[in-house]
Simulated scan of single mutants.
Amino acid sequence: MSKIYDLVIIGGGPGGLSAGIYAMRAALDTVLIEKGVPGGQVTMSDEVENYPGFSHISGAELSMKFSEHAQTYDLKTISDEVMEVEPGLDYHLVKLANKDILKTYSIILATGGSPRKLQIPGEDKLYGKGVSYCAVCDGFFFRNKNVIVAGGGDSAAEEALYLAKIAKKVYIAHRRDTLRAGMLLQKRVKADSRIEVLWNTVLTEIKADENGVCGVGLKDTQTDELREIEIDGVFIFIGFNPNNELVPAGIVMNAQGYVVTDEKCETKIPGIFAIGDLKEKYARQIITAASDGCTAAIAAAHYVENKKAA
């Protein structure tokens, strides 16, 4: 408890790792805490085609490059879970699951988000038994089988295209009559003979037998007509919820639970910053998370400098 870090970064995704790079370049005494695999949600992406400098790269490889770059600056990392962030006037406290407590002048919250659930019967019970939120992780188990993807955005389209390389048939159930995915992805989906889009359709139930998922209940959003189809796997990509459990009282969040910051990514509590998928913003992309990390680290460096000079 005697040592006071200049900066503690909570989360090792693209935003957190970018913050680590800029913090080390600013000579901040920094530690990054990540409870899982460095890279965050990016590691689960089969293909990344919109990060500048890489026309085509896997999410796992891009994450590795982020991590390796950060380690060239000897960024200190701790593999543990943060249980609580306690703001203070002179410094802040970061409490870990292993009972360690870190003192720090500044904190960057880069905790990202978690897959949003459909909240329908069978979803939780059958998770890992035919229900998945990651096609790259679990697509292999559905080779030459029939699967359904719930969602209509970029993630749903990307995962459907990935599954189409493996599965016999891929359905996309989308509650509207047009996809929300980018036009390039929409063209690819429509051109793939193994993909069929079920327009104006939502899942109502996931059914199972002794082997796992065997079918789903569907409802037409316009007519309320109900029907069932036989399915071996269900992949859900309907967005993410911000991982805001560590956000301390006194920090403003919007109605969706995203943290409100200023242009420096700083919250209402001086010295605490929020970036990436945790932050209220227009676009949620790898590049915007990395940009947030840069901004927050530079702002933290100025904050710490002023704090020490006071």
Results as ranks from 00 to 15, higher is better:
188 R>T: 02
207 K>A: 12
190 K>D: 13
184 L>V: 15
190 K>W: 06
208 A>S: 14
192 D>Y: 01
182 G>H: 14
207 K>M: 15
209 D>W: 07
205 E>C: 11
191 A>Y: 05
200 N>R: 10
194 R>L: 14
187 K>L: 12
198 L>D: 03
179 L>T: 01
191 A>F: 03
209 D>L: 00
208 A>G: 05
179 L>H: 01
204 T>G: 08
196 E>L: 11
198 L>N: 06
192 D>L: 11
189 V>G: 05
200 N>T: 03
208 A>T: 03
182 G>Q: 15
192 D>T: 11
207 K>V: 12
179 L>C: 03
199 W>C: 08
197 V>P: 02
192 D>V: 06
202 V>G: 03
193 S>I: 10
196 E>D: 12
193 S>R: 13
200 N>L: 06
202 V>W: 13
202 V>P: 06
199 W>L: 09
185 L>C: 03
190 K>C: 01
176 R>D: 04
189 V>D: 06
194 R>K: 15
202 V>A: 04
196 E>F: 07
188 R>D: 10
183 M>V: 15
207 K>G: 09
191 A>V: 01
202 V>S: 10
179 L>W: 02
189 V>W: 09
190 K>Y: 12
194 R>Y: 00
184 L>P: 00
191 A>H: 09
205 E>F: 13
202 V>M: 11
185 L>V: 04
199 W>R: 05
188 R>C: 10
199 W>A: 09
205 E>T: 14
208 A>P: 07
200 N>Q: 11
184 L>A: 12
190 K>F: 13
208 A>C: 04
200 N>I: 01
204 T>W: 11
175 R>F: 02
206 I>M: 04
185 L>R: 02
176 R>F: 00
195 I>R: 08
175 R>P: 00
205 E>N: 14
203 L>A: 03
191 A>P: 06
183 M>Q: 15
201 T>G: 08
186 Q>C: 08
199 W>E: 04
203 L>M: 09
190 K>L: 12
195 I>K: 06
205 E>Q: 10
192 D>G: 05
179 L>Y: 01
182 G>M: 15
206 I>E: 02
191 A>I: 00
198 L>K: 09
198 L>Y: 07
196 E>A: 08
209 D>I: 02
208 A>Y: 12
206 I>F: 08
181 A>S: 10
202 V>E: 14
185 L>M: 06
197 V>S: 05
176 R>P: 00
184 L>W: 01
183 M>I: 15
184 L>D: 09
